[in-house]
Simulated scan of single mutants.
Amino acid sequence: MKKKILGVILSLTMVAGILTGCGQTKETNTGATAKARTLEDIKKDGKIKIGVFSDKNPFGYVDSNGDIQGYDVYFAKRIAKDLLGSEDKIEFVYMEAANRVEYLKSAKVDVTLANFTVTKDRSEQVDFALPYMKVALGVVSPDNALITDVDQLKDKTLIVVKGTTAETYFMENHSDIKLLKFDEYQEAYDALLDGRGDAFSTDNTEVLAWALQNKGFSVGIESIGSIDAIAPAVQKGNKELLDWINNEIKALAEEQFFHKDFEVTLKPVYGDNIDPENLVVEGGELK
């Protein structure tokens, strides 16, 4: 009887192994990605899946009431309204900086609006639409040990988030600076508050906002690296959806939509500390 039971268990284990092996072959051995939903698929479903941050205030974050807010979110809702007739016809998918490309490749989202900076490497893996924002890197640190020049970071620890342009920039240009890396923005800010690092670098727009809300910290380096574009992204080859988003961005310029977005979501945070012309991009045209 024991032999019979053991035989059944072994048989089931072999079947499970075969099935698991097949799944791995499809996803990892061939490098295949899940097929993205077309524009028509999204319309038929009646809901669009858009990836955003949930911890990057003021661009994508969950507020004290549990509602998702921010500059990227404001735009995402307009996409849903113009494409599907209601801003409620949207499924927000929360993501981390390091999985933005992966979520598009695996079709977990239709569009990524998670403060996604356009880079050459990323452009080889996903398709970017026209930009709706521009940004550089900034560095925030405690007032009592303020970092005002990148040379001051030598022999110190700089906090960055994995998969960001800050991580890439400092790895490629300042290899002598020790990097402390985290998966999530909140983890990075907690590390700065706890003194586990001497400074934190990410988009200057974000560190400026954070410093305004956290007494005792300032952005000593307001701009480092190149001025980059931030744009929506779709899975590589999803041309119809990409074309629709590009046309949407061009059309929204007629009403100065992104300036309105700035007034609603960013002005309450920045006040007069940031000129919208240094951040907002209308019609997909960088100036």
Results as ranks from 00 to 15, higher is better:
residue 92 F to M: 06
residue 130 L to E: 08
residue 141 S to L: 04
residue 215 K to P: 05
residue 103 Y to M: 07
residue 82 D to T: 02
residue 7 G to S: 12
residue 6 L to I: 14
residue 97 A to D: 13
residue 253 A to K: 11
residue 220 G to R: 07
residue 192 L to G: 08
residue 172 E to Y: 06
residue 162 K to L: 05
residue 119 T to R: 06
residue 173 N to P: 06
residue 95 M to W: 02
residue 271 G to I: 11
residue 283 G to N: 12
residue 124 E to I: 01
residue 130 L to R: 04
residue 281 V to R: 00
residue 94 Y to P: 07
residue 51 G to F: 00
residue 32 A to C: 05
residue 284 G to K: 12
residue 159 I to F: 02
residue 209 A to R: 10
residue 223 S to V: 10
residue 210 W to D: 11
residue 76 A to G: 12
residue 221 I to G: 12
residue 4 K to E: 13
residue 65 N to R: 13
residue 117 T to W: 02
residue 212 L to Q: 12
residue 137 L to Q: 15
residue 145 A to T: 10
residue 74 Y to M: 09
residue 211 A to R: 07
residue 97 A to Y: 03
residue 146 L to V: 12
residue 201 S to H: 02
residue 174 H to K: 14
residue 33 T to V: 15
residue 193 L to Q: 13
residue 8 V to R: 12
residue 35 K to S: 08
residue 131 P to H: 13
residue 55 D to K: 05
residue 276 P to H: 00
residue 232 P to M: 00
residue 176 D to M: 03
residue 57 N to F: 14
residue 173 N to Q: 15
residue 44 K to V: 13
residue 2 K to L: 14
residue 273 N to Y: 11
residue 145 A to C: 07
residue 203 D to L: 11
residue 73 V to W: 00
residue 229 A to Q: 14
residue 204 N to L: 10
residue 163 G to F: 01
residue 243 D to C: 01
residue 2 K to M: 03
residue 207 V to Q: 04
residue 55 D to I: 09
residue 207 V to W: 07
residue 145 A to V: 02
residue 117 T to V: 15
residue 151 D to I: 05
residue 68 I to D: 03
residue 128 F to T: 07
residue 18 I to K: 01
residue 11 S to N: 09
residue 238 N to Q: 14
residue 136 A to F: 10
residue 196 R to K: 15
residue 135 V to C: 02
residue 274 I to D: 05
residue 36 A to E: 07
residue 69 Q to P: 07
residue 166 A to F: 11
residue 169 Y to L: 09
residue 140 V to L: 05
residue 52 V to P: 04
residue 282 E to M: 13
residue 9 I to V: 15
residue 255 E to K: 12
residue 236 K to C: 11
residue 193 L to V: 09
residue 282 E to L: 09
residue 96 E to H: 01
residue 247 N to C: 04
residue 125 Q to F: 04
residue 238 N to H: 13
residue 20 T to D: 06
residue 250 K to R: 14
residue 285 E to N: 11
residue 79 I to N: 00
residue 111 V to L: 01
residue 214 N to Y: 08
residue 92 F to P: 00
residue 39 L to T: 08
residue 138 G to F: 01
residue 131 P to G: 12
residue 37 R to C: 02
residue 154 K to E: 10
residue 225 G to I: 09
residue 285 E to T: 14
residue 169 Y to G: 10
residue 81 K to A: 06
residue 216 G to V: 08
residue 86 S to E: 04
residue 164 T to D: 12
residue 128 F to M: 08
residue 263 E to W: 01
residue 150 V to T: 14
residue 140 V to H: 02
residue 222 E to S: 14
residue 84 L to E: 06
residue 49 K to D: 04
residue 285 E to I: 14
residue 62 V to E: 05
residue 24 Q to C: 09
residue 40 E to H: 11
